[in-house]
Each structure stands twice: as C-alpha cells, then as structure tokens.
C-alpha cells in the first residue's frame, strides 16, 4: 500500500512542479505583456497601417534601410506573419532577402515589444525567465538582443540578396546555353 501511495505522490509531484512553473509565468509574465500589448496595439490603430505603408514605399530603394528599418516597421506594426506582406513594396529581385531579414527579426523584437509576435514569446522568454530566477536583470539583454537582431538581419539581407543573384545568374546562363 505504501508503495502505491508513494508512486501516486511521485506521479502528482511531476505535475505539481509544472503547475508551480505555470502559476509563476501567468502571474509574472502575462500582466505586463497584456498591458504592453494593449498600449502598443492602440498606438498602431491610431497611426493606421495606411500611413505606415506610405512611408514603407519610400524607403525600399536604400539597401541598408531595406534590411533594417523596413523589416522593423513591418514587424512592429503588422507583427508575425503579416509583416512579410511588406515584401510587395520591394523590387521582385529583393523579395527573398527582404523575407529573410523580416523573419529573422520576429524573435529579437519580442524582448522589447512582445505584441509583435506573442505566439512565439518563449524563444526570448524561456531564457529571460531563467536569468530572472537567478536574480539578474534582463533589460540590458533585451536591448542587446534587439540591436544584434538588427545587425544580423542586415547581414542576412545582404548575403541572401547576393546568393539569390548568383542563383538567378546561373539559371540564366543555363537557359542560354
């Protein structure tokens, strides 16, 4: 009998630990995220996507802005996955590189702006929670995550653009031959 009851206790213990983690996340993460998301979503609604689109069209010509500012405003205002629709403002040949840049920002942005990708918060939140448990502040990490994210998407954009040009060039040669 004692074996059975200790088995049951161990079994419940597995989920008790999970429940404690869950309760910690719900009280620790959700209130902040809800208020932040509401505030930013209100700002987005007040600004209006049309104004953002008009601005986006103007900056697609510049390489550096195309792979930094353009994905940033797309991800900030439209979130994942609608941010990729800003690809329509970009020249056809730059679209794969724009996608690569935009998609690579959907996680680095969540440290500061969780509204942009609330369905995939835990790439950032998983690690950030671990550090908080050790009593470390994650604000500095969130800002660096964001900055490095912007640098990385610029590199990704430029490199993917080059690789895409090389692939299309090779294709054209094959067709001509």
């Amino acid at each position: 009998m004692s074996i059975i009851s200790s088995l049951a206790e161990g079994f419940i213990g597995l989920f008790q630990a999970g429940g404690n983690t869950f309760a910690g996340w719900v009280t620790g993460i959700i209130p902040l995220v809800v208020c932040l998301m509401t505030a930013v979503n209100s700002v987005i609604k007040l600004v209006g996507t049309e104004r953002v689109e008009a601005f986006a069209k103007k900056i697609t010509r510049f390489t550096v802005l195309r792979y930094t500012l353009l994905p940033l405003i797309a991800v900030f205002f439209l979130g994942n996955p609608m941010c990729y629709s800003f690809g329509k403002f970009v020249d056809e040949k730059y679209k794969p590189a724009y996608y690569d840049a935009a998609v690579s920002l959907v996680h680095p942005i969540t440290g500061l702006f969780p509204h942009a990708n609330p369905g995939e918060l835990f790439v950032w939140m998983g690690i950030a929670q671990g550090l908080q448990e050790r009593g470390l502040s994650t604000a500095g990490l969130a800002i660096r995550y964001f900055i490095v994210g912007l640098i990385v998407i610029l590199i990704r954009g430029i490199l993917t653009e080059r690789i895409y040009f090389a692939l299309t060039g090779r294709n054209k040669k094959a067709e001509n031959a």
């Binding site: 996955p81 609608m82 990729y84 629709s85 800003f86 690809g87 329509k88 970009v90 056809e92 040949k93 679209k95 794969p96 590189a97 724009y98 996608y99 690569d100 935009a102 998609v103 990704r156 490199l159 993917t160 690789i163 895409y164 692939l167 299309t168 294709n171």
Partner: peptide, 23 residues
C-alpha cells in the same frame, strides 16, 4: 508562404527558398 504574402512571382519563390536556406 512568406514570399507569396509579399506577392512574389513563382520563379522568385523557386530560387528564393534555396537562397534563404543556404544563406
């Protein structure tokens, strides 16, 4: 999917996929 959301042509998608993956 992301490329078609950005209204890319089918030819762009065909070569765009390996370009992103190799990059």
């Amino acid at each position: 999917v992301g490329l078609s959301l950005g209204e890319a042509e089918p030819e762009t998608i065909e070569l765009g996929v390996p370009a992103v993956l190799f990059s």
